[in-house]
């Protein structure tokens, strides 16, 4: 029996794959850093997800794709959605009632206002400027001689608010180097850049209009300093998924499942197959496939004071 729907998000810096069962619950996830849009990276994500779920591929009912590389899915996708709709749907499942989604990925920032059902009402995207995106923070981390995983914690130590005049992904690095040369504390510089980038994101949100509650998705949501700065700029807590990178892939899978079922709700009485899976300590899909409900998604523990853990 074909039971599973696969959602894939092939972005500019990573590939994500999510497998959901017929109750639309996540049974496996995989995130592969690719460096750029990569068919091979997507294939690796698919292999990892299927390996984790331990399911046969002929049990897959449909494949849905989103992201810049959505047309690169091996064998083609049954459904294709934009990241905007996919993130909106994913967030609506993770956090019912959210009205504003801010997705910050590898090179895009999106502000998406959604209705009560998670349907897109309006959206705005950054223009061709990578300010405040994953690429931007990679450059910042490099200039500050730290790694991207540590950048958020590093910036959280900063106290001063320095003036950052350029948020161009290229020129900001030049400015950071100049500030370092003047003897400023690298943590202060990191914190100041995060504040400035948050202010810019606020402008994008202004285009669609602020609405509450707000969820932050995309890989950059793992950066605690971004969460803190944006939360402070918005004046409210942000909802952060446990694994913010998979939100688009998850949303694409849900949209595909709903399309297959004519928009109906999942059959809660359906019995999901119980695939053997070994999480290997990743915890990302939880030992949960048979019992987890949408509202019980485990949240990433953040050091940011404003990121609410649900």
């Amino acid at each position: 029996m074909s039971a599973y729907v696969v959602g894939m998000d092939l972005g500019s810096t990573s590939a994500e794959c999510v497998v959901i069962d017929e109750r639309r619950e996540i049974v496996a996830t995989a995130v592969v850093e690719t460096g750029t849009v990569s068919r091979k990276g997507l294939q690796r994500a698919i292999d990892e997800a299927f390996g984790e779920a331990g399911i046969e591929r002929d049990l897959v009912r449909a494949v849905a794709a989103t992201g810049y590389g959505r047309r690169l899915v091996p064998g083609g996708a049954d459904f294709v959605f934009t990241e905007i709709s996919a993130h909106a749907r994913g967030v609506a499942a993770l956090f019912p009632g959210v009205r504003l989604v801010v997705d910050i990925g590898g090179q895009d920032t999106k502000a998406i206002q959604v209705d009560e059902a998670g349907r897109v009402e309006r959206f705005a995207m950054n223009d061709r400027c990578a300010s405040g995106t994953g690429r931007f923070y990679e450059g910042l981390a490099h200039a500050l001689e730290t790694d991207i995983e540590s950048l958020g914690e590093f910036a959280s130590r900063g106290k001063a608010d320095l003036e950052i005049s350029s948020l161009c992904a290229t020129f900001a690095v030049t400015e950071v180097i100049a500030l370092l040369a003047k003897g400023h504390d690298p943590a202060d510089i990191a914190a100041s850049v995060h504040h400035a980038a948050a202010a810019r994101t606020l402008g994008l949100i202004g285009q669609v209009g602020k609405a509450s509650p707000v969820a932050l998705t995309g890989g950059v949501a793992r950066n605690a300093a971004v969460v803190h700065s944006l939360s402070e700029a918005l004046g409210e807590e942000l909802l952060i998924p446990e694994n913010p990178q998979i939100t688009g892939a998850y949303g694409a899978a849900l949209l595909a499942a709903e399309s297959l079922d004519g928009g109906s709700q999942p059959d809660q009485n359906a019995t999901a197959p119980a695939p053997p899976h070994d999480h290997g300590g990743s915890g990302s899909c939880a030992d949960c496939a048979g019992s987890k409900t949408e509202s019980s998604v485990t949240m990433l523990t953040l050091t940011a004071p404003s990121g609410r853990v649900v």
Binding site: T82, I84, S85, R119, R122, F123, G263
Partner: peptide
């Protein structure tokens, strides 16, 4: 991407 998203938004509005 933006055209597709616009059309999806129109679809969502029609669904509402």
């Amino acid at each position: 991407t933006r055209l597709a998203a616009l059309l999806e938004t129109i679809d969502a509005k029609r669904a509402r």
